[in-house]
Structures are given as structure tokens and as C-alpha cells.
Design a protein around this nucleic acid. Structure first.
Lengths: 220, 220
DNA sequence: TGATTCTCCCATAATTTTGCGGAAATCCTT
DNA sequence: AAGGATTTCCGCAAAATTATGGGAGAATCA
């Protein structure tokens, strides 16, 4: 689940936007002042939505501090003033998108979805962290506190499948197709076996069995 | 089939729009006054189309009452005045779309289609909120104030059935088919049992029994 | 080729969920 | 308020699903 931090001093709009964003299942925290938002930068939300005009610390200063803290955090600007828009577009503010007031809340939701998709659909490139484990998908390596753990190829396939779908239950059918391919005709039970092996090697991985459904990796 | 309620006091436009909407196979009811429309809110159409300028109760008041009755009902505004449009977009009107007069009827039809598709085709993507509960259908998870509650697979199937059909009474027959499949030949009584178990685990879920009929999930 | 590892499968045990009978409680009708 | 129908509740047994240990065959690698 993604966390989104919203900064806007118009309390009404703020409240509405929070409602819409939460409707999508995101965890939202909202701020009405730039100063309050600034002190939350260390909490590293997955995305920021910033109004430019704020009573104290304005959006431009905020984005600088956000990006200074973590260059990759996506930011969406919202603003009413045309000159601001020009500034956002013209300068290299590092903003990932902007939206001019007035706008429909669902328009904002659409943009957030796009950006999150762009940022998180490609976890293949980055590393995945899960508790003490660090997974390097492209290298097919998993470390526990820097100590590499040996996995066989199927074990690794399974790990990646779950690690990229944390929280989502996977049926044996889905697992078979993903790990063995759709031309496998043996028994379902090999999945149990593979799960057993992975559990044994990665004891801190919460691979939960969902009776009658399949398995799921519980969020760390 | 979807039911659409249209509110516009211009009788000519009203008639034309009804024709176009019915052309799509939707069941349309039209009103020329806000008061008449207001008393039809309890009929829960799938979508409302509201003109803002009405002789008596205006569109803004109407949407408040519609959303108060059921937060999720989609609403499309139509209006001629620019200032209205600004109001719709900017403020927390909860409108799902708007369209400025004059417009082509088929433009309206397109927007209605989009919204219906969004609302009904993808109930799986969004989360469902019911009082303190948050349901993540695709993850087969339900949380009460962030605290996950364990459900068995049939219990979850039942929950989803009701949660996606809030307010609609379901017969035992329907529940059997939906949860057990149409090839189940045991007794009806298992439904009672399942309902009992779900009630026990989710005590704040208002699963009302309708004597002689079945059960219904009362809106939170 | 031989040794080692990996994968698959089977049988059995352990676990979880579900079904069912009957009694108690509740609801509706008269 | 009584009586019949319906629903709820309870606990246990049956059924379904999953975990586990062990062994055979396949693949891999030196």
C-alpha cells in the first residue's frame, strides 16, 4: 500500500482530496502548512502532492527539500496561478506532474495512479527490501543483513513472484504458471514443496498459507 | 440494466436526452424539478445527471442529499454558467464529472458510459469501506481500524457478495450459487451457518435477516 | 562418470474448514 | 397470546486442504 502526503492550506479541498485518495486504498496524510510538511519529509512517503501557494514555506522550497532528501520521490504540483504553472513547466523543478486549479478530484487520482505505476511497476530495476532481507531481482540474489543466501532457480522465481506482489494471495494455479510456465502438467502439490523449501531457507519470510486459496507474502 | 435519473427543467432538452440515454438500453427517469427528484433519491438509481439551475432545489443541494444517502452514487453535472462550472470543479461537490451547455447528447452518453464502466467494472480494484472496516477485495483482506481480521475463504466470499451489493436482499438460493457454486446440493441451512460465523467475526457488520427472504447488508 | 543437488511425487499426519442434527430463540400471523 | 414457521445457536463429526518425511528420478557440475 502506498503512502501519499498532501500539502494544501485550503482545508475544504484538502479534506475532499484526502477522501478521494483514501478511496483508492492509499494511506494519506495531509498538511495545511509547509512547515508541518517539511518536518515529515523524513517519513519518506511514496508520493507528495504540493500546493505551491502556502502561507509559510512554499511548494518550490518544499520540493527542493524533498528531492534533496530522496531524489526519486515523485511530486505532483497543484496550483491556481498561471505564472506558477509556467514556472513549473519552464524550470526544472523536478516535479513529476502538475495540475491546475480548478480540477476534478478524480483527475488528480488518475495522475497519481500514473505516477505510482511508473515508479513502482518496475521493481525489477531496484532492490526490494523485506525486513532483514534485501533482494536484487536482476542479480537473482537475496541477502540477509549482507549475508547472501543460496536459492535454487525455482526458489528464486517464487521469491520474486511474492516479493513483487506483497500482500496479494496467489493461487497454486497462478504460481504454477508463473514459476513452471503454462505448459506444466504435473500436480499442484509441487507448489507446496517449493513453498516449504523457501520457508526453510528464508525463515523470516512470512509466507502465509490461505486455506482453500493459496499462499500470500505478508507485509513485513 | 442501469437506471439513470435525469434532472433538468428545460423540457425539450430533457426529452431529447432521455431518448438518447434510453437508446443505450438504460432505464431512464426524468424530473423537471429538484423537489420531485429529491423524493426519488431513495430509489437509488445507478447514476444521476443534474442540471444546476433548477427552479426550486438546485443541483448543489441535490448532490448533497444524494451523496448523503449513498456516498458512492455517481453524479454528472450539466450547466451553462461558467461560475457554476468553477464551483463544481473546485469545491468539494463530489461530482464525478460535469459537462457544459451546450453539448451534444452523444457527448453525455459517452461520459455516462465511462462512469458506469468505472463504477461497475472495477469494483475489484478499489477498496470498500464499511464503517470501521476496510475491505481489499483483491487481497482478500478485511481490516478493522487497521487491524486485520481472519476470515475463511467462504466467509470472505460471503462478505464480498454483500459488500458489493450493499442494501440488496439476497436469497439463500443466490447466496448458495454465489458462494458454493450452482453444483451444490446440500441444505440451505449452511447459509445460515456461514452468516452466523461472519456476524461473529465482524460484529459491526449489519447483516440483517429478512424473514422468509434471506439476508441483507444494511448500509453503514 | 560419479557425486551432488534439485525436483517431483507419494503416503501419512496434522490442521482447518465445513456440514449437519437438534434444541433454543425469534419472528410472524391469527 | 398461542402456534407454526423460520432462524439462530451449539458442538461434534466429516470432509477438505495442507504440511511433512522420505525416496526415486532428473539435472548439474566437476
Amino acid at each position: 500500500m502506498h503512502t501519499i502526503y498532501l500539502v494544501d492550506d485550503e482545508v475544504n479541498l484538502n479534506r475532499v482530496l484526502v477522501k478521494y485518495l483514501e478511496q483508492e486504498g492509499w494511506q494519506v496524510k495531509s498538511f495545511t502548512s509547509g512547515e508541518a510538511a517539511a518536518s515529515a519529509i523524513i517519513e519518506k512517503p511514496d508520493l507528495w502532492i504540493l500546493d505551491i501557494m502556502l502561507p509559510d514555506v512554499d511548494g518550490f522550497q518544499l520540493i527542493k527539500r524533498i528531492k534533496a532528501h530522496d531524489e526519486t520521490t515523485p511530486v505532483i504540483f497543484i496550483s491556481a496561478r498561471d505564472e506558477d504553472i509556467d514556472k513549473i513547466i519552464g524550470l526544472e523543478m523536478g516535479s513529476d506532474d502538475y495540475i491546475a486549479k480548478p480540477f476534478l478530484p478524480r483527475e488528480l487520482v488518475i495522475r497519481v495512479k500514473k505516477i505510482l505505476a511508473r515508479t513502482y511497476v518496475t521493481p525489477k530495476t531496484g532492490v526490494i527490501r523485506y525486513g532483514d532481507y534485501t533482494i536484487y531481482p536482476e542479480k537473482r540474489i537475496i541477502e540477509e543483513n549482507g549475508q547472501e543466501i543460496d536459492l535454487t532457480s525455482k526458489e528464486y522465481d517464487l521469491l520474486i513472484l511474492f516479493a513483487t506482489q506483497i500482500g496479494t494471495p496467489m493461487s497454486r494455479e497462478q504460481i504454477l504458471i508463473s514459476v513452471w510456465g503454462d505448459d506444466y502438467f504435473g500436480s499442484d502439490r509441487v507448489v507446496d514443496d517449493l513453498v516449504r523449501r523457501v520457508r526453510k531457507k528464508l525463515s523470516k519470510l512470512e509466507l502465509e498459507t490461505i486455506y482453500g486459496i493459496g499462499y500470500r507474502l505478508v507485509a513485513a
